[in-house]
Each structure stands twice: as structure tokens, then as C-alpha cells.
């Protein structure tokens, strides 16, 4: 078994954190709660699944940690997801740019799931572009399982965070301020 790493090590928690932000994205919560996806994650060596379900109405079933299957827990909101992101070994997120860049900056492996029910769905643009550049994996709720099966975390390219200084310089130059 390759890819996932850490398989079979007893007593080691490998957490998958799922976040939908402030949105309602039942299709994603339902997908990660399905047996198929939970088994796929377990096969990859993940031991815990923690779901931030936001405004959704689909309630996943809690599963206690035991041998042979992944433990499942969930909550609706948290003022900051930073700690959850930090403790996770894999993040499955909605396509909001906030959680995408927060995760990439932490250098954590990320699967972005695009919500196809949104009307003006420009969000897939960002996820697909970053997936093309191998910074993350991009999935739809119905393809999530295949993406997990096929993913190789080693193939991901670390993301170099952007820099606001050039834009600040442009603003200063335009206004005739000295740039320092």
C-alpha cells in the first residue's frame, strides 16, 4: 500500500476534516457520510472523520472509534476552523476561497468539492485552476470516492502564498506617494 502512508500503525490518529463553511452543502456531507467514502478513507489509513456541516439539514451518524472502521463526529459551526485544519491529515472542503487558501497555507492535503447546486457557480474556476497546478484535488460530490481512491498525496505541489506588496506599490505609485 502506498500513497496514504501510515497505514496500520496502531494508536495513531489520522483525521479527515470536512468543512462547508457558512454554506449549506448537504450533498457533500451525505457523500462523506456514505459507506463507500468512509471505507475509501479507511483504506487510505485515516482513522477519524470530523464534519463541520454548517447550515445543512443532513445529519451524519456518529460512529465511535473502533477497529475496522473510521470514527465519525460532526458539529455545525466554530468561530475558527484553524485548529481543526491544523490537527487534520486531510481536508475535504467546499470551494470557498477562504477555506481553500487557509488550508493551502498550512500545507495540508486538500480535496475541494464543488457545489453544483449553486446558481452563479464561478467557484469551480478557482478549484479547477488550483487542481491543474496540482495544489489540490478537485471533486464533485458524486466523484469524491473515486478521487480518494486515486489520489496520491505525494503528487501535490506545495502552494506558495501570494503577496499584497506589489498591489500596495501600484496604489502608492499611482497616487504619487514614495514607495519604500
Amino acid at each position: 500500500m502506498g500513497g496514504g502512508g501510515g497505514d496500520g500503525e496502531s494508536g495513531r490518529r489520522r483525521i479527515v476534516f470536512v468543512t462547508v463553511g457558512t454554506t449549506c452543502f448537504d450533498a457533500l456531507v451525505e457523500a462523506v457520510d456514505s459507506e463507500k467514502v468512509k471505507e475509501a478513507l479507511w483504506r487510505k489509513g485515516f482513522t477519524h472523520l470530523l464534519i463541520q456541516m454548517g447550515r445543512g439539514t443532513y445529519i451524519p451518524s456518529k460512529v465511535a472509534a473502533e477497529d475496522g472502521s473510521i470514527a465519525v463526529d460532526y458539529f455545525t459551526f466554530s468561530p475558527s476552523i484553524a485548529d481543526f485544519l491544523r490537527s487534520a491529515s486531510l481536508i475535504i472542503s467546499h470551494a470557498g476561497s477562504g477555506s481553500i487558501f487557509e488550508t493551502l497555507r498550512l500545507g495540508k492535503p486538500l480535496i475541494v468539492v464543488v457545489n453544483e447546486d449553486l446558481m452563479d457557480n464561478h467557484q469551480s474556476e478557482l478549484a479547477e485552476e488550483l487542481a491543474d497546478q496540482k495544489h489540490l484535488f478537485c471533486a464533485r460530490p458524486q466523484t469524491l470516492c473515486e478521487i480518494i481512491d486515486a489520489m496520491d498525496l505525494e503528487s501535490l505541489v506545495p502552494y506558495t502564498p501570494g503577496d499584497a506588496l506589489p498591489v500596495a506599490k501600484l496604489i502608492n505609485n499611482f497616487l504619487g506617494f514614495p514607495t519604500d
Binding site: 476561497s97 464561478h122 467557484q123 474556476e125 478557482l126 479547477e128 501570494g162 498591489v167 501600484l170 496604489i171
Partner: peptide, 9 residues
């Protein structure tokens, strides 16, 4: 000064 959001690719 308008900076188009990074989400617009």
C-alpha cells in the same frame, strides 16, 4: 483601485 477577486480565474 479595483482588484478582481482571486476566485475569478
Amino acid at each position: 483601485f479595483y482588484v478582481e477577486s482571486i476566485a475569478r480565474v
